[in-house]
Each structure stands twice: as C-alpha cells, then as structure tokens.
C-alpha cells in the first residue's frame, strides 16, 4: 500500500450540508470521500492505494480534474484498489456532484 498527499489550486465549489461518499473499495474500484476544507481556492487529496508507484499518474489525473472542475475548499480522501484513471475521474465527478447537493 502507498499513501499519497497532494494539493491543487482549484476554483471554489459550492458545498451542500453533508460530506459525500462515492464508490466502493473493491477490485478496480475506489471510494472517494469529499469533506469541506479550510482553503477555499485549494483542494487537498489524500490517497491510500493498493498499487505502488503510480504517484505521477495520480498527480496528472487529479491535476487535470482540479483544473477543469471547481473543487476548491475541499479535502478529499481516497481508498483505492487499483482503479484506472477513467474510473477515478468518473468517481471524482460523481462525488463532487453529490457534494454540491445532488447526484449526477
């Protein structure tokens, strides 16, 4: 297992009342928990992943997401069991949508 920590600049995202959870920690899948953070223009991400050595891939996927979607003001925790970048991006979009008060 590997633990990764990142911080990305991102436009503020409006928050709903509750933290949001998407996905399941199963083979090829991951869970994403979005909670409010203290920096409105930044998104902090902490990942625990079963697959070692993919730090740069995670950085690229998350950076691209934080640039194209407002995700500022959040702390995101991820538990991963080898999800592909496409699955990661999909789950992030679902989790952020739910965080704003409605599922996709």
């Amino acid at each position: 297992m590997e633990t990764l920590n990142f911080r990305f600049d991102s436009k503020p995202v409006p928050r709903a009342a509750n933290p949001a959870l998407c996905g399941v920690v199963g083979s090829g899948n991951l869970e994403i928990l979005v909670k409010p953070g203290i920096e409105p223009e930044a998104c902090r991400v902490r990942i625990k992943t079963s697959a070692r050595g993919f730090g740069e891939t995670w950085r690229a996927v998350l950076d691209s997401f934080a640039t194209s979607h407002p995700a500022g003001g959040t702390v995101i925790a991820i538990n991963d069991m080898g999800a592909t970048p496409a699955v990661v991006t999909l789950r992030l979009a679902q989790a952020l949508a739910e965080y704003q008060g409605g599922a996709l």
Binding site: L21, V25, E31, K48, T49, S50, A77, N79, D80
Partner: peptide, 8 residues
C-alpha cells in the same frame, strides 16, 4: 498493518 487499503 497488512498493507491493504480499508474502507471508511
């Protein structure tokens, strides 16, 4: 401890 990711 066994190096496996858990679920919240």
């Amino acid at each position: 401890l066994l190096d496996l990711p858990g679920a919240f």
